[in-house]
Nucleic acid binder design. Sequence first.
DNA 1: CCTTCTCACTAAACCGGTTTAGTAAGTCAT
DNA 2: ATGACTTACTAAACCGGTTTAGTGAGAAGG
Lengths: 334, 334
Amino acid sequence: MKKITMQDVALKAGVSKSTVSQYINSRFEFMGVSTKHRVEAAIKELGYIPNHVAKSLKQKKTGTIGVIVANILHTFSTEIIRAIEDECERNGFHLFVCNADDQPEKERSYIDMLVAKQVDGLIIFPTNGNNDYYKQLKTAEFPIVFVDRVINEPIFPTLLLDNESASQIAVDQLAKKGRTKIGLVSTSIVQKVTPRIERIMGYKKALASHGLAIEEDWIVAEQREEIGSRLQRLWDSGNRPEAFFATNDLALIELLRFIKKNKLVIPENIGVIAIDDSPFLEMATTPISVIKQPTFEIGQNAADTLLQLISSKNFEEEYEERRYRPILVERESI
Amino acid sequence: MKKITMQDVALKAGVSKSTVSQYINSRFEFMGVSTKHRVEAAIKELGYIPNHVAKSLKQKKTGTIGVIVANILHTFSTEIIRAIEDECERNGFHLFVCNADDQPEKERSYIDMLVAKQVDGLIIFPTNGNNDYYKQLKTAEFPIVFVDRVINEPIFPTLLLDNESASQIAVDQLAKKGRTKIGLVSTSIVQKVTPRIERIMGYKKALASHGLAIEEDWIVAEQREEIGSRLQRLWDSGNRPEAFFATNDLALIELLRFIKKNKLVIPENIGVIAIDDSPFLEMATTPISVIKQPTFEIGQNAADTLLQLISSKNFEEEYEERRYRPILVERESI
DNA sequence: CCTTCTCACTAAACCGGTTTAGTAAGTCAT
DNA sequence: ATGACTTACTAAACCGGTTTAGTGAGAAGG
């Protein structure tokens, strides 16, 4: 069935399509009342819906933004995306969301696809494997904002949690309850993912700040599927920490699974604290203490920063990364 | 900074842009080897990225699909969307995901926006408030697939859980454990949302099938924020069920919050079963039994059905709704 | 009455890639 | 030598909306 165009509306209303375009864009300054009503009636009668593809071609903008998430399984990612969506929507933009699964090749092909689709800008949780390509895009003055991870050069605005600070809070909380033997559980640091690296660094610094030794065996940083068995081996070795600090929600799930398997009681047998929250942690038998990221604020700011870049076209040579203060949610698990 | 176009590549390579277009589209049948290499080198040298907006205008397709979710807070929604994303991606399509918050006006404006953006089709979890508009789109032969909810006429393919069956399984499980006083917790049915209505209907039928009376006071179907206080009043009344059946994950969260507040022990003091799963339910102190939807299959089929509609352009007068068998995940909470 | 200005509207170029009919050169068969 | 066919390539129209310079009619001022 033939799609209705402005030309059809113009014919129906007895005007030119320029006049219809003026009407669609609410430019009524030089438009007779009779003309206006005829165009309005024609649009309604024909059920005309504008074609934004044609408009985008001429105006060289699409009103869309690409978001490339490194790992969408992290709850905080989806929370940040929700905030980005809300803020973009408030400004008349819509999102393509893509999941790179922490793979640089996937990320690269998403960037290409989104640039080809003429998105007006990108928000990327960078995988850290496309640094040359990021530089090319910088040279091309393509608007990009990074979130959650830092790359080797500060070429785009970068927003992320103060990870070391988050670890400091975690260790502080455990130490405050008298815990001196503190282990850490993380997902793999092979890819050198900023939050994981910085949180482990922060954990070490925090232990040192409490005069506590760093027990390398108590640092479990594995692929998610390996965490359980590593924890088991650690537990069975007899040299056990009193508490565990999980650096993200996926690590926490594996930690809780291990705890349940060994029929440990929180916090009597083992203390637990984690970074990032989930609705169920609050109402677990033992509600789990967490350090939250201000995901809504990060997302909103990321969106605003990008929209600013898009509209101003003012590109700085370098950008200072913006760090967000973590938020302690003290429950009963430590 | 000026964007590189095919014309620029053509000039560089010493060919016409038609030739460049043939190269980009891998049409080499009538192309000299020398020409091919010159075009290839020019593309690489200039860093040319095609403009899909121009291509879409000419070809009248964008390779994008709109997904309008009624309520994105439900975990099953995001699981279905993940499956849709994967399947669409496998077929070279990408998604716009919009959240209607169960509001028909929001849904309507999203449909308009997505049609204007020339998406090739829509997957909608319908709010049930735009039936006339759905019919208009049917008349216009716009490809749409409905998910999770049924509207008053079978004008588009519709995929959803066998909700009554899910409730039957829930009541069967509780009855099997000797529970005869079974309450139900749901989010609000004011909007007549298909799954909620059907699950309550299924619950009543299932009680009847076990010769159990329907205690209207034990049916809590409220706005999410009201559920806790309604449950509290029910509990304090003294006329209490032995177990609760939560019809979705949001209702379950409120139920668990109530249980925790009243220091009840699952399943000793109160049995619990719910529809829809979450990672944490498995490792709760008392792992919660659930009836899962086959979200991956539903999402994949929804995507395939829509892609079929898009490519075949073959629209039936009516469609039979497709029901999916629920899956029991027996844990320890009943 | 003539000139200038304003109002209301329109023709046509443009955005960038696709596609198709057309062109030129070379090959082959008669 | 000529006609038919194939290969390799290209000019230009098209997709649908935007935008701008242009046009005609009417009003106002000198």
